[in-house]
Design a protein around this nucleic acid. Sequence first.
DNA 1: CTCATGTGTCGAAGCGCTTCGATGGACGGG
DNA 2: CCCGTCCATCGAAGCGCTTCGACACATGAG
Lengths: 333, 333
Amino acid sequence: MRKVRTVTIADVARHAGVAVSTVSYVLSGKRAISATTRQRVLESVRALGYHPNAGARALASKRANVIALVLPLRAGMNLPVLMQFATSVVATARQFDHDVLLMTADEGPEGLQRVAASALVDGLLLMDVEVRDPRVPLLRELGEPSVLIGFPADAEGLTCVDLDFARAGALCAEHLAAGGHREIALLGAPRVVYERGTGFAERTLAGFTAAAKDLKSVAVPCEETYDEVAETVKILFDQHPGLTGLVVHNEAAVGHVLAALRALGRSVPEDVSVVAICPDDVAERASPALTSVLIPAEDVGHQAVRLLMAKLDGLPADSMLLEPRLTIRESTR
Amino acid sequence: MRKVRTVTIADVARHAGVAVSTVSYVLSGKRAISATTRQRVLESVRALGYHPNAGARALASKRANVIALVLPLRAGMNLPVLMQFATSVVATARQFDHDVLLMTADEGPEGLQRVAASALVDGLLLMDVEVRDPRVPLLRELGEPSVLIGFPADAEGLTCVDLDFARAGALCAEHLAAGGHREIALLGAPRVVYERGTGFAERTLAGFTAAAKDLKSVAVPCEETYDEVAETVKILFDQHPGLTGLVVHNEAAVGHVLAALRALGRSVPEDVSVVAICPDDVAERASPALTSVLIPAEDVGHQAVRLLMAKLDGLPADSMLLEPRLTIRESTR
DNA sequence: CTCATGTGTCGAAGCGCTTCGATGGACGGG
DNA sequence: CCCGTCCATCGAAGCGCTTCGACACATGAG
């Protein structure tokens, strides 16, 4: 536990034979410094293994170079996507020389209040935003730079990023229609997700329904245990014997749906075509590999951070919807 | 975007009619303050909505009140457990008045170097530690307080926390043996996990094998796509027709294993008893509900933070193994 | 040759907090 | 009644960094 006295900017300045402020300017690039001096300073930095003290920097510059990532972590969430998302947020933030503070919703809105007021973070990234999200009013109140993943009911004045789920739902329906299917169904999120009014579920449904207006179509919520899924699928086919196309927008249930179809003796894609809205790895791991619209978690994370950084620099940042992409695999014809 | 001038400790002091240092002592409790003064100060704090500036506090006290959570996020990991874990880490850290900085392994060991040297964090929590983990030597070098989840080959002088996987493996075998099963198998993690030398997989295997020494037993790795699982299960029963007990230590494959058994016409638990090592929610969601040894992610997270906090206070902190608990459900007899 | 104009560097004043030593008053023992 | 103690509070010195204004010197225009 050698508690070495940490290297400060003063040590670097002394070592390089310049003033403290000169070192600071070399590092920040905020004033012109001659090439020779810059060289000398950078060498001293390397030689001493200098790392600026984060607290001091934050105090003096009023910028912590940290952003908060707020994950609600409620039931019925899609972990793999969330993880991909978190990873890409961290990676992108690092590119902008920022770190990421992890917050869960457990602390509630006061948590946001706290980190913002204490200047622990410069901005907020909220995930899994609901249509009627309790955090949104506070967010407006706070006036802290922020970006939301998902769209609340009133997105006026907020910066939001999301996959265009309506397009995704429509894309699935269109793909099935193009394959000649005349009667199709949407298996959605668990009932509780709709009741909570989570935007993405509703928007997918709307897009699906609109695109399927010339077909016979039906949409049902879908729980996530094998038994419930099997039940749902059975009822679905009992009530709609002519059904030949299925859109599954429920990551956790995808495997169960396929198992249930197997159990019912309906083969995919011969008897039923299945399109999923899920990450690629899930689609590829399924059997048969699923035609799917992927949730571009990586891209969403990247864009969200980009927008937040823009806001931190005082630039305008408009909301954006990311275009979905359909990948055709073995589960549709 | 009302950029209100933030409330400082000086504002509070003025409002309460005391010195700045008095406010500080009231808030930290490091010196005795009379009840009446304390009251007055606390009221001012509330009235003004004061939140100490994190940077200033870190600078002056040399404690950032932030810990780093390092998630490798590699392939073959168990996301739900990881999430539970992360959640419990955040919650526990908050109880100790600390926040959590999220780091991925992308940045490599220099990332640890960086956050430690910049005093961004007071300590490190490393997840998913491998037997031969490249981060471990650096960690020793760094001399930064840290706690590892998992045990590296040489844990000497380090503080590690983990489920006692050897006991877990043994517990499963013992449970099956007690049920009268004479020939049992372990379906483990994907092959790559063993090749990487991830400790928990090896230790489970060892515990299972030791406990099954009076039975006929076999252990095989297990991939995570349905087709591969089905294949593995089929081969397993072809080669071991007398097999009646299965231990599954692979979260992602559990569902597929049950589906494969259904497909082979073997019913659970009539023909085959199945014990899983997985979180409770997965075991409960399966059909039939699985007898399981849960991975006490929540507890691991809690203990890990507790130990780290102890170290930050200069107290000794010994490694610990958490005792597994078997829950009997419908999949064994 | 002088003066306005850059360039590159320096010194010092904070940023908001913690912490150490000092101070003043209340109190009881001698 | 004086002095030593103890308790509650205060003032001031940093913590390591950024940033502003000042300054020294070089440069080119007039």
